[in-house]
Simulated scan of single mutants.
Amino acid sequence: MSKTFAGNFFEDYTLGQKITHAVPRTVTSGDRALYTALYPTRFALYSSDEFARASGLPASPLEDLAAFHIVFGKTVPDVSLNAVANLGYAEGRFLKPVYPGDTLSSESEVIGLKQNSNGRTGVVYVRTTGTNQRGEAVMSYCRWVMVRKRDVDAPAPETVLPDLAPALEAGELTVPEGLDWSGYNFAQSGERHRWDDYEIGEIIDHVDRVTVEEAEHMLATRLWQNTAKVHFDATLREDGRRLIYGGHVISMARALSFNGLANAQIVAGINAGAHANPCHSSDTIGAFTEVLDKAETAAPGVGALRLRLVATKGGPDDYSLKNDAGKYRSNILLDLDYWALIPT
């Protein structure tokens, strides 16, 4: 009997199946340092313990997306080791801040299955929950992945598509316990723009661009213990090029959004997301954001913005995402709809 694991294929999944993922990961300050080295992130809440304490938190937490990558990475050997592509996200909730010293674990449930018409692949829908060492849920999200079949003659399962909300309601967002921005320090945060300054429909070009290097995206993917073969083994891609982990693009675009959204400190929810086109080494990533909605929260000095963050190859020549046929334009890498918390 082989002692190695080749990963699950599409026919290995069943509706309702629950998967406890190895291996628990204790977060350290090293994760924060490496995250900052990989992405041009400068959000004050995640840079300064003193700024975090002045905001009502016990210390500076790990960036929300860094915690997301760790929880996500745990799922890859069981969910997407044999993936062709990670297709999308929905119903992402950030439930508790993650701090250095916390140990994160992940569990997923299969909530949908659909074999593709080519008979060689299928789409697997999962809901993943990340928990800390106290068993408290720190986040949950849904994603769907196109996975290869081991045997093209294996029978197709009954198609079940989950009923996923197109967006979270503002009232569903979790504001970290104790968060108080009534005395927010705008001088330290880097910008004066607050909740009132943003208008629905406004588009912000974040100006800055970053060219992706081969070494850094592989370092990032290993940091999150993401073992998906397409990110490392070029022979698994018809074009002979390693596919950059979509989370690397998300974090790069989020970091670039600091210029114009420096006070959108906390990612509170992910409504929807799509990796519209593949990203490869030597691509230059730019980003722009459209303000979709605004909402108040019950926390002192805290408002919420619903934002559409778009990552592009190079700078956007305009702000349209799709062509006349309704397909994403070839220069669109990421279309991410999320909620952020911002001072009022």
Results as ranks from 00 to 15, higher is better:
P162M: 01
T26V: 07
G314V: 09
V98E: 01
Y99H: 08
G122T: 03
G303E: 01
V123D: 06
E63Q: 14
T235S: 15
S189Q: 07
R127G: 00
N8S: 12
P58W: 03
G92H: 02
G240T: 05
D64I: 07
L341Q: 03
L161E: 09
T289P: 10
G122S: 02
A165M: 11
G260N: 10
L34H: 09
D163L: 09
I70E: 05
F186H: 11
Y89T: 04
G201H: 03
L38G: 03
L334I: 09
T26Q: 07
L309G: 02
V79Y: 05
E109L: 01
R308E: 01
D12N: 14
L57N: 06
K294G: 00
N259D: 15
G260I: 08
A170R: 04
N271C: 11
H217W: 08
Y89I: 05
N263V: 11
T28K: 08
G112Q: 02
V302G: 04
N118A: 04
A6P: 09
L164T: 03
C142L: 02
A295Y: 06
S47Q: 15
Q115M: 11
R42N: 12
R93W: 09
R209N: 09
D78V: 02
Y184T: 00
V138M: 02
I250G: 01
G286T: 09
D208P: 03
Y319E: 04
T36A: 15
A295G: 02
V310Q: 03
R209E: 15
A215W: 10
A276Q: 10
T131F: 07
G56E: 03
R120Y: 08
G16V: 12
G269H: 01
N263W: 07
L292W: 00
F68V: 00
A220Q: 06
N116W: 02
K3F: 13
N259C: 11
Q265S: 13
E214F: 09
A52D: 00
T121Y: 01
W224S: 13
M146Y: 03
R222S: 09
F51E: 05
V123Y: 03
F186T: 12
L34F: 14
L95Q: 12
N116K: 13
I111Q: 02
M146N: 11
H193Y: 14
E213I: 05
A83G: 12
A154H: 10
P100I: 02
A311H: 08
S282L: 14
P157V: 10
V230A: 14
G314S: 09
A83V: 04
A274S: 14
A262D: 08
G7R: 03
G178P: 08
D293G: 01
F9K: 05
A228D: 08
V152Y: 10
L161H: 07
R120K: 13
L62A: 10
V212D: 00
Y184I: 00
N8V: 00
V147Y: 07
T36K: 15
L307W: 00
I266C: 05
N8L: 13
F186I: 10
A268N: 05
G269K: 01
D324R: 15
